[in-house]
């Protein structure tokens, strides 16, 4: 069985919102219709988005870190939003595990949004149906696109490669390896929703410099590594001698 998912590396995300705008651009232009905005250039703008980047401050100044936190549908393996839907408009695809909304069946009762602890479903105020991340289901299987581009728009847009995409049920996939080897975790595990999307934690980043990175291996004139010799008259630290 396949479970497509995103793995988001919080250690790498710089909070640039490129995934948000790319997601909005792709999904407002698709066959499923636009993602409506109201008063986009006016006071109190609002609109429907599948993806948001939030920012949290962890710790207290000066021992604080800024964590940028992209949030979209987690495509839970046991999605609480699906069984509550009275029409069957909200469903989880058996073949790849994507949780989708059939916009032609949705009656806009908002019950699925109540039943999602993550707040990733948003009603489109103009189409009056519930909308959510589709994992760019209209991109990832499109044979007209080059194979390398058959990825969600947010993954394509991320300038720091903070967003990984793949099948978390395939132990050899890039996402499974990232979860396994870099401490990937799920959000709100207390509700047993088993989110497919995972997050990679912030890590301590240490700079490791080896000698051969400072000196060229061939070092033709043997001058790499030599310290500059100051002139006789130049001041030195102890002001006595520099030779």
């Amino acid at each position: 069985m396949t479970q497509l998912a995103l793995v988001i590396d919080l250690n790498v995300c710089v909070g640039c919102h490129a995934c948000v705008t790319s997601c909005k651009e792709w999904n407002t232009s698709g066959v499923a219709g636009f993602l409506s905005d109201d008063r986009p250039y006016d006071r109190d703008p609002t609109g429907t988005f599948f993806n948001r980047v939030q920012t949290f401050e962890v710790g207290e100044y000066p021992d604080a870190q800024t964590v940028h936190f992209p949030k979209s549908c987690l495509h839970c393996e046991d999605p609480p939003c699906v069984p509550v839907c009275p029409t069957g408009a909200s469903y989880k695809r058996a073949e790849d595990g994507i949780v989708l909304v059939d916009y032609d069946k949705c009656i806009g009762c908002k019950y699925c949004a109540w039943a999602c602890p993550y707040g990733v479903r948003e009603v489109d105020e103009h189409q009056k149906v519930m909308k959510k991340c589709t994992l760019c289901v209209d991109r990832i299987y499109d044979p007209a696109l080059p194979e390398a581009e058959r990825k969600p728009a947010c993954v394509m847009a991320c300038p720091t490669s903070a967003r990984l995409y793949g099948d978390i049920h395939d132990p050899e996939s890039v996402v499974s390896k990232a979860i396994r080897e870099q401490g990937g975790y799920a959000l709100m595990p207390e509700w047993g929703t088993q989110p497919a999307n995972h997050y990679l934690p912030r890590r301590r980043t240490e700079m490791r410099i080896h000698k051969d990175e400072l000196e060229r291996a061939d070092n033709p004139l043997k001058i790499d590594g030599l310290l500059p010799k100051p002139a006789l008259k130049e001041p030195a630290l102890d002001d006595v001698t520099s030779w």
């Binding site: 919102h17 948000v20 109190d44 703008p45 609002t46 609109g47 429907t48 988005f49 948001r52 980047v53 939030q54 920012t55 949290f56 401050e57 962890v58 710790g59 207290e60 800024t66 964590v67 936190f69 949030k71 949004a113 479903r121 948003e122 009603v123 105020e125 975790y185 799920a186 959000l187 709100m188 997050y199 934690p201 912030r202």
Partner: peptide
């Protein structure tokens, strides 16, 4: 909610300035 085990976490931005659903 964000999976960070630190007692002091404060939200600084929610991704938009005005309202949403």
């Amino acid at each position: 909610a964000i999976g960070i085990k630190h007692p002091r976490i404060a939200q600084k931005a929610q991704g938009f300035m005005c309202g949403s659903f």
